[in-house]
Amino acid sequence: MSEAEAKKVEQMEEDPYELEQFHKILEDSKILSCVQCGKCTGGCPAGRQSRIRIRELVHLAHEGHDIKDCKELWLCTTCYNCQERCPKGVDTTEAIISLRNRAIRKGDHNFPEIHTTAITSLRDQADGFPLSPDVESIRSVIGLPKHPHDLAHDPEGLKKFQALMDDLGIVELVMKKQCGEGKPWKYVDIKYKPSVARGTKKEGESNE
C-alpha cells in the first residue's frame, strides 16, 4: 500500500474508542521512536520472500495512516527478529499483533478466512488440530491412551469451555466480520480438514 492510498486514521475514524485504541497502539509499542533505520526489514525472513516490509508498515502507522486494510499485515510470521533487533526499542511485532486485533474489530476483509476453521474447531472440540481416527489407533499401538486426557474428551469441561468462549465473543466477532455487517450469521458448519498427512500417507503423496 502506498502512502497516497493510505488513509489517515485521524480523519477517517468515527469511533472515538477506536481512535483512542489506535493511539494507544502507537504509544504502547513505542512506534513514535522509530527512526526508519530499516534494521527490522533487514532481518525479516518473511520480507525476504514476500512484499511485507516492516519498516514501511511502521512508517505508515507512525504517520497516522490506517493500515488495517494492508494485506501485508497478515504476512508476518511473528518471529520477533525485528523487535529483538530494533535499536530504538520499538515493539514492532507486538504492534503488528495489535494492529491485526484492530483490523478484526473494524471488519477487515483481508484476513485469511481459513483461520475461521481454527476458531470454530477450538470452540467445537477445544483443539486447533483435532484428533483423527488414524492417530487414535496409532496412539493405542504405541501404548498411549486412545483418547488423550484432554478437554476434548471431558464433556462437562468442554461445555464450560464453550460457555467461556461464547462469553468472550470471539466466534461472533470473527464470523460477523466474515459474513459482513447486517447479514445473518450463524455458527458455520466448517469441518476442519487439515491439509496434512496423518501417518497413513506415504512420503511424496499429495497432502491436500
Binding site: S98, I104, I119
Partner: peptide
C-alpha cells in the same frame, strides 16, 4: 490435566489478545 488448545497464538492472539 484437562487442557484445551493453548490457544494457537498465530490465530487467536492476532484476532483478540
Amino acid at each position: 490435566h484437562r487442557y484445551s488448545c493453548c490457544p494457537a497464538p498465530g490465530v487467536f492472539r492476532g484476532y483478540d489478545r
